[in-house]
């Protein structure tokens, strides 16, 4: 009877415990840079990427694990597609953006077995939206300087990780991009403005500083979204 009780107790304790799964050990920046050197790409592109990758990883705009996973996928592409992928990465890095969501979007598409041309199309749209969101925000005074430069009059204690302004640009561009990538009409600025507002309100006060969100929400309108999307989809940006 005692042994039955013991068995029961063990089963009970087993049932009460969740499986705690550790994430994979984090990759290091050195691993990323080493893999980059092995990829077939023009030396000047690799040189530019090396500097940009170091800066992005130091500024926590890019997680080494995500960068490493992306470069491993690039290594599996044809040389032409691989160079295209590295060129897209280089452009995004130079913009001072937070890169993890962009590379994760590429990884999702590749895990789904989509051809590189389709993945590249989504990435280019996302980057154009990041570019034009930043541009329109600056014009409207939501951003005081480009993301690559310091935001002088933002009175906030320095925080670890990417600039809050970079997060604001990212989340706004991403909400618009989610709508478009899912097949939403670029003319439906009202729906896009609502998506952006919901996303920002959800992140307000914990992932995004409340004052920054409030500053944008005061300016947010379908007309503002239409400016961003119109610029992103203009023929000269394609």
């Amino acid at each position: 009877m005692r042994s039955w009780g013991l068995v029961g107790l063990v089963l009970l304790m087993g049932g009460l415990g969740w499986a705690q799964v550790p994430l994979a050990p984090p990759a290091t920046p050195d691993q990323v840079l080493e893999l980059l050197q092995t990829l077939p790409a023009p030396p000047d592109l690799k040189q530019s990427l090396t500097g940009e990758l170091i800066a992005a990883m130091q500024e926590a705009r890019l997680t080494p694990g995500v960068a490493l996973a992306f470069l491993k996928e690039v290594a599996e592409l044809s040389q032409a597609d691989g160079e295209d992928a590295l060129g897209i990465l280089n452009h995004a890095l130079a913009g001072g953006y937070i890169l993890d969501p962009l590379l994760n979007a590429a990884l999702k598409g590749l895990r789904l077995g989509r051809p590189w041309s389709e993945v590249a199309g989504v990435l280019k749209l996302r980057i154009r939206l990041l570019d034009t969101t930043q541009q329109v925000f600056q014009r409207q005074g939501v951003l005081l300087m480009p993301l690559g430069e310091a935001q002088p009059s933002v009175l906030r204690a320095p925080q670890p990780g990417p600039l809050p302004e970079a997060k604001l640009v990212l989340e706004t561009a991403w909400a618009i991009g989610d709508f478009l990538v899912a097949g939403g009409s670029p003319a439906d600025a009202v729906s896009m403005a609502r998506e952006v507002e919901e996303r920002l309100l959800r992140l307000r006060g914990w992932l995004l500083p409340a004052d920054l969100v409030d500053r944008l929400l005061a300016e947010l309108s379908p007309a503002l979204i239409q400016q961003i999307v119109g610029l992103a989809l203009s023929p000269e940006r394609r």
Partner: peptide
């Protein structure tokens, strides 16, 4: 997902009741 660079992380069902679970330690985020 975004937390694993879209690398699959296995869920487990040790007691075979059809409920597959995993608990991941994730920093705050979307």
């Amino acid at each position: 997902g975004d937390f694993s660079a879209w690398e699959p992380i296995p869920l487990t069902d040790p007691d075979g009741d059809g409920i597959w679970t995993a608990v991941l330690e994730l920093p705050p985020g979307r």
